[in-house]
């Protein structure tokens, strides 16, 4: 069964590193509608920050491109976040997702971006076409709070 989102938003912005905080703050502000805990919101912000940083450091390395984020909210408390770029793409997604793998030693990247997304969110899916771009889709279900259950 395909669920219909109850709300949706899209933002796009340039791949300047100053926009890393904007990207995660925009998603967090939208996700606030699901009444998440501070911890859940922090997990979302961290995962988004990793994905946006990947676009800046890898997809658009030495260039400036556009990063697109689409968020959808669902009735069951789920949020889906899709972060997309039209950058260089990833040759071997499986290899790129291995913890500690990095192609960016000079920038002091720990190689943990995907590992963090995977552990802080419920699901993570990465699709990429070399020369075309990369798309990262993540889901998280925000738990209903006790107070809401009682009313």
């Amino acid at each position: 069964m395909i669920m219909k989102p109850t709300n949706e938003m899209t933002v796009s912005f340039l791949s300047c590193s100053a926009n890393e905080s904007f990207g995660r703050a925009a998603v967090a502000a939208f996700a606030a509608q699901l009444d998440p805990t501070i911890d859940e919101l922090s997990d979302i912000k961290t995962a988004v920050s990793e994905a946006v940083t990947n676009c800046i450091v890898h997809a658009y390395r030495d260039t400036i491109g556009v990063i697109y984020i689409t968020c959808k909210l669902y009735e069951n408390g789920q949020i889906s976040i899709r972060i997309r770029d039209k950058g260089c793409g990833i040759e071997d997604v499986e290899k790129a997702m291995q913890p500690l793998f990095t192609t960016s030693d000079s920038e002091e990247r720990a190689g943990l971006g995907f590992a963090v997304m995977e552990s802080f969110m419920d699901t993570l899916r990465v699709t990429s076409k070399p020369g075309k771009g990369t798309s990262v889709t993540m889901h998280k279900t925000i738990k209903r709070r006790q107070a809401e259950k009682n009313t």
Binding site: R24, T46, S49, E50, E108, R109, A110, L112
Partner: peptide, 13 residues
């Protein structure tokens, strides 16, 4: 208040 894996790279460096 906030840190992503860039902070890990920072410590490692």
């Amino acid at each position: 208040q906030f840190m992503d894996s860039s902070g890990i790279g920072l410590v490692m460096g």
